[in-house]
Design a protein around this nucleic acid. Sequence first.
DNA 1: TAAAATAATAGACAGTGTTCATTTTTTTGG
DNA 2: CCAAAAAAATGAACACTGTCTATTATTTTA
Lengths: 199, 199
Amino acid sequence: MGRRSDHSRAELERMIILEGHRQLAEVGFSRFSAREVAKRIGYSIGTIYNVFGTHDRLVLAINTRTFRLWADHLRNRLACAGGDRIRTLVDGYFSFARENPNLWMAIYDHRLPPDVPMPPEYDDERRVLTEIVAREIAAALPAPRREEAPRLARSLIATVHGHCTFALNGSFALMGESEPLELALARVRESLAAAAAGK
Amino acid sequence: MGRRSDHSRAELERMIILEGHRQLAEVGFSRFSAREVAKRIGYSIGTIYNVFGTHDRLVLAINTRTFRLWADHLRNRLACAGGDRIRTLVDGYFSFARENPNLWMAIYDHRLPPDVPMPPEYDDERRVLTEIVAREIAAALPAPRREEAPRLARSLIATVHGHCTFALNGSFALMGESEPLELALARVRESLAAAAAGK
DNA sequence: TAAAATAATAGACAGTGTTCATTTTTTTGG
DNA sequence: CCAAAAAAATGAACACTGTCTATTATTTTA
């Protein structure tokens, strides 16, 4: 059949991504199935492939949505933050991951083949998140050190990411660590202090 | 057929793990197939399941071997290290991951169901690696601060892990960062200095 | 050598991603 | 208003996957 209703192509795409997102959040990356997504929205598997072409690109689209939600989450937290914006930042990173473990992990579980480059739209979304952090890091540094903000931001994101990963995958629990967030925050504070003091 | 040669059960297990390891290194976690492993060692798929029971347990066994090799790698580097043992440590972490990207990533790609606990042998291996790091961190701290070593070690492992992850998965490249190792090392040095100074 | 234990097999099952010829629906133009 | 063109949706087919299990082959044991 052709157009079954007033859904335009873009609306269908949105439907698929939305249901895919719901599925991914529910069952996790390893059990995610494009067929199941199709079934749930009342379409056949072929339609998914007409729209997205490939399983990879579907996951990419869903993960892009996760990135957008994550950035929103951070912005909201920062908007009503108290004085300690750095804590708000680290806490926002952690809380999104904890509240959406399957979605958050799927971002890093999914790896596209080495020859396939990341579509521009996808790393645009990622850049947004990085920029939010970079802005806060810059604000936390004294003016003369502010040029170091972008590079320091990248590094601190990696630092917090590592702590968050170990918190969610159980590594910290196995090591007997019960307060990963405080641990991450301590590292971030040290690095900011060191940068402020100037090397 | 029964025993086709003088391979004992333990030897067969070793054969499977070894070939599985080779496979995993070659094709990566997402394309890894127990069937293919069976084919390559001239056994049928059933044998793999007689020995390991499940795909998860096979991957677990293979990843455990990776952990052992990683610990060996670190020990070797440290054994012939110059004065800068901290750099050696961070470099050892990175170089193993870079030299064995598929094996290293597979450790974190693989997640067993939340209800299934990690078999003891597996986190024994992990603990070995943690202890190697903890020992070096303790040695790098002044005596009065030495009790903080285990917790700081956990945190610094997470820090380096985060940087290593972003280095391998291309996140740093997208962010325009070209020297992840130096970045990680800088963070580790700052934290050690802060700990030495005593908060 | 016969019986019991062990080891290995491979077919069956229910999934998966992917492709594509076919069919259905919608849009368009006369 | 209706026929032709365009667009959208289908679902069977293919080659895989992990998993289970009845069957068969081999070895050990008594």
